[in-house]
């Protein structure tokens, strides 16, 4: 379990201020969806959180301590493909488990489990060059789930997937979250996706990014996208995102 505290986070690229004094908390076991206009700095925020970018000001704490990638169990599914082309699908999935020294039995069991989850059982011995874009993203998703992280960061992970698979993986993510109570920070520009999955929604403004609204999603799980209350919530978020 992980509790994330973001205090006065500020990040600029040259003269362009991307994140402007952002503060919020993600509690243990939260499922937070962050939505905002395209290019508002959602990815910059996640990259800062995992220290891929140095921040200009403020602090990010996990369980009250500075982020330490070797100590805190974090998995990050990036927007870009991050599969290693010299490893097969199976080896890619096992990479994180091997560096975290999972037992052989657990490694094999988890590999089979996540391969099945993303529907790539038949492609275990394929190389990334032989896979489609959506399959590559599924490998990254499987790899992240395999390491059983305390904090799961997801940056528009389902954007490249076809609708059927997206719906399946959305349900799968909700199931895993309910089972494990892993803290999840999920970035998306798909409002329906955010309302469908999240327990909390945070809406960001356009650059320089600030937190516009942060509220609990009260709809009970499982949700139905055609229900009136769901549509009301979706419209509420849509209105908040409109920045023009």
């Amino acid at each position: 379990m992980s509790k994330v505290e973001v205090n006065h986070l500020t990040k600029s690229f040259g003269s362009l201020k991307v994140l402007d004094d952002i503060s919020f908390q993600v509690n243990d076991g939260d499922f937070l969806c962050i939505v905002g206009p395209t290019g508002c700095g959602k990815t910059t925020f996640l990259n800062s959180l995992v220290k891929l970018y140095d921040i200009d000001d403020g602090e990010i704490l996990i369980n009250g301590e500075e982020v330490d990638l070797n100590k805190h169990s974090i998995a990050y599914i990036m927007q870009e493909y991050s599969t290693m082309s010299w490893l097969t699908v199976k080896e890619n999935i096992q990479f994180g488990m091997k560096v975290r020294k999972f037992s052989k039995e657990k490694l094999n069991r988890k590999t089979e489990e996540v391969l099945k989850m993303v529907g790539l059982e038949k492609f275990a011995d394929y190389y990334p060059e032989q896979l489609s874009a959506s399959m590559l993203q599924r490998v990254s998703i499987a790899r992240a789930f395999a390491v059983e992280p305390d904090l799961l960061l997801m940056d528009e992970p389902y954007g490249q997937l076809d609708l059927e698979l997206r719906f399946r993986l959305e349900d799968e993510l909700i199931r895993i979250w309910q089972e494990t109570k892993t803290t999840i920070v999920f970035i998306t520009h798909n409002i329906e996706e955010a309302v469908y999955m999240s327990q909390r929604i945070m809406v960001l403004t356009n650059k320089p990014t600030k937190v516009k609204e942060d509220f609990v999603n009260p709809l009970p799980l499982p949700r139905n996208v055609t229900e009136e209350k769901f549509i009301e919530m979706r419209n509420k978020v849509t209105n908040l995102i409109k920045w023009w």
């Binding site: 995992v50 070797n70 169990s73 990050y76 990036m78 991050s82 990479f95 975290r100 990254s140």
Partner: peptide
């Protein structure tokens, strides 16, 4: 991106060199 992904998965600098930089 690969280096970042490996770091996220818990790889240490020596492992990143051995398993990412060298094969790439």
């Amino acid at each position: 991106t690969l280096v970042g992904a490996a770091r996220m998965l818990g790889a240490k600098p020596a492992q990143i060199f051995l398993y990412i930089t060298l094969p790439a």
